[in-house]
Design a binder for these strands. Structure first.
Lengths: 142, 142
DNA sequence: AATGCAAATGCGAATCATTTGCATTTTTAG
DNA sequence: CTAAAAATGCAAATGATTCGCATTTGCATT
């Protein structure tokens, strides 16, 4: 299936077009797992795209505010990671050895959230979950 | 039940005693929910205890390394929070309005972790979970 | 109680990611 | 094509965390 053009995506969330925004969106689309801002910046350089770092920050803020991306904190890497927002949100298994982030297909929190809402008189509107350990490739080293 | 003295706790994990370490441990024991390093520093000042901020950082690093505390990242507050390590680890419901952190008594991840280990060929060694929403007091404002 | 040594602390400076102010450039609307 | 508004680049500021080094502390030994 063909994906929506970055131009259209910006349009859809009422963000003005700019070269830099399109580039970043395109780069984010390529990613299979979340990346840090630093990695994104390196990616920009490696493609000879030249976007000022402060602009990257500003654009990511705008993307976040307009729900184009998700920003979570990866304790393992001690930094934020960014990913394009998917139709349903994802969680990851994070390898403590090779740092790989493996997406979990269906969010295991559904039932848990329901339970909590019933039992605790708390309205759940979001959650963050990461699972740390060793992936199949690295498991043998431990 | 009477709790272990800070002195003994330090001893148990083979950390040398110092005034500052005892003070911090005492302060952490008082807390019912995690606090930021900044809050801890303020607490130190308000008790006229005087511990240099860089020392606080160093001591917390030592506590972490020796498993006296847990350090997690609270996305809502955009900073790390610290708590004394409990016999079994906790997760929190975090109110997006008043920022209160309400501990969940039993960790809902047990079954999920087992499932993942079976299905994914991934060895789980830790996880981080926070649930964001509105507590009973703040729910009416939303 | 005094001494010596290793480890911990205080202090100021350095570092590093992120943010900000402002001049310049780009985008969009007319 | 032009003008106004918004976005970007650049350099400097900020703020949390870390570091180096001189001083102090805790503790074992005398």
């Amino acid at each position: 299936m063909k994906q929506t053009s970055s131009r259209t995506m910006l349009d859809n969330v009422h963000l003005k077009y700019s070269r830099q925004r399109e580039w970043l969106l395109d780069l984010l689309k390529e990613q299979k797992t979340p990346i840090t801002i630093e990695q994104l910046d390196e990616l920009v350089r490696s493609r000879k795209l030249s976007i000022n770092l402060s602009t990257i920050y500003r654009i990511l803020d705008a993307f976040l505010k307009h729900d184009l991306i998700e920003k979570t904190f990866n304790i393992q890497m001690q930094s934020y990671v960014i990913e394009l927002k998917h139709s349903h949100h994802r969680h990851y298994l994070i390898c403590l050895d090779c740092q790989k982030m493996i997406p979990i297909n269906h969010c295991p929190m559904h039932n848990i959230v329901e339970e909590i809402e019933k039992e605790q008189n708390f309205h759940v509107s979001a959650h963050q979950l990461e699972i740390y350990g060793y992936c199949s490739a690295c498991i043998k080293n431990h």
